[in-house]
Amino acid sequence: MIPKINGLGRSFAGVAAYCLHDAPEPDDRRPRTSERVGWADTRNLATFRPERAARLMAATAKAAPDLKRLAGGSRGGRKLAKPVLHYSLSWAQDETPDKGEMSRAVDGSLEALGLDGHEALIVAHEDTRHPHVHVIANRVDPETGKAATLGNSKLRLSRWAEGYEREQGRIRCERRVENNERRRAGQQLLRPAGERPRHWARIRREGMQPGRARRTRKPRREDQINMEAWRHGEAEAWEAVADGRESSFRHLETRARKEWAELHKRQEEMRQRLDRESRTVLGRLRIWRLDRSLRELTGAIRGREDLVKGWREDLDRYHKGERAELGKAHGERAQEIERGWRKFYRSRLVDAERSAWAVRERMRERYETRERDRTITRIVVPRPPRPRGPERGGGGFER
């Protein structure tokens, strides 16, 4: 069993159209066929027609303030921006679960996420070798109008999948079981041999593609500037941003890896020291002096197991807080880098627009000069003045 959360969304109709039809093709982005759909079902909806489920769930999400008021709560609060939860459950290729088994698995996963009373659309696909089912759930509770909290949803599904495989009598993912045990013990997760740890900085750097990060603001009046020169300047600006951003995140990743290694080493030394000190009376007394709790003095002398276990839990909570602070510091540093390069990119766009405007002005001046040089100016020779008086052919001025 492999549960996978595809993410949160805003449109029930969009994800329902994807699940209830065949996969889109490059030349057909909205296919009308549904040959890959094996069966479809609903949960907590007034209709059994899958094509109407998306409309009903969207109506429930839109009526969340009214549902809160009817339930006796306040209509206030921030509006839920992404009420759609889309995830899938996949079985192994050698497994052949029927509709009933898939439905029971979906109900168990919804219960693990705290969505057992919420509206959901279930669609099973048959276009792959491994059986799998898609679940579209509404985060808004149809009774209270409140949105479900999905914190640690991946860990919830991981623990549920482990329990599901144990019920089936065969563990197919040993690493998931080991990682869940290490999570409970507060230890570092296991990774495949030769696989590089995927730090958050590397994920951010690799996931930032030009289509998402390159938000180009085109000039408003394209007819008055040289667009070719502007595109050239924008491309140079983006190349500088991409190179500098990659270098900054590489440096941050190296620094973060070093700091995380030092933190894990220091925390492991503290855990080992606590284990060594808790084995002897003098060591427990030293821990008690640090703790300064008189009522635990007798327990420290006798070496009560619950007291030592409590010390370990306190140390784990302290270590968890340290890891959270370090991760927050690295995240703030990454945001500073993003803001800095975004500001640099915008300033370079302004410079590119100014230079493109200047190029357009220079081209216009050259054109006018060239046209003026090509113009043939007609030279007009002034005629002599017409003779007057006696010069006209004789005769003078007679009165």
Score class of each variant (00 low, 15 high):
residue 176 R to N: 07
residue 144 T to H: 02
residue 33 T to K: 12
residue 378 R to A: 14
residue 334 A to P: 01
residue 158 S to K: 10
residue 186 G to E: 02
residue 106 V to N: 01
residue 79 K to R: 13
residue 295 R to L: 05
residue 214 R to P: 02
residue 320 K to N: 13
residue 393 G to H: 01
residue 31 P to N: 12
residue 316 D to M: 15
residue 320 K to E: 14
residue 355 S to H: 01
residue 113 L to F: 01
residue 252 L to D: 04
residue 328 K to T: 15
residue 239 E to N: 13
residue 136 I to T: 07
residue 38 G to V: 11
residue 10 R to T: 08
residue 330 H to E: 14
residue 175 R to Y: 12
residue 58 A to C: 12
residue 178 E to Y: 06
residue 319 H to M: 14
residue 396 G to H: 09
residue 335 Q to G: 10
residue 92 A to I: 01
residue 56 L to E: 14
residue 398 E to Y: 05
residue 44 N to K: 11
residue 91 W to R: 06
residue 327 G to P: 02
residue 19 C to W: 06
residue 97 P to N: 04
residue 210 P to V: 00
residue 304 R to I: 01
residue 203 I to T: 11
residue 204 R to C: 01
residue 79 K to L: 05
residue 56 L to F: 09
residue 375 T to M: 10
residue 334 A to D: 04
residue 377 T to P: 06
residue 111 E to N: 04
residue 14 G to F: 00
residue 275 D to T: 11
residue 179 N to R: 12
residue 346 R to F: 05
residue 260 W to Q: 11
residue 280 T to L: 06
residue 129 R to D: 07
residue 361 E to L: 14
residue 173 C to D: 14
residue 72 G to W: 06
residue 17 A to D: 15
residue 201 A to L: 09
residue 19 C to S: 13
residue 244 G to R: 07
residue 248 S to M: 09
residue 42 T to P: 02
residue 193 A to S: 06
residue 76 G to D: 11
residue 373 D to T: 08
residue 142 P to C: 04
residue 299 G to Q: 12
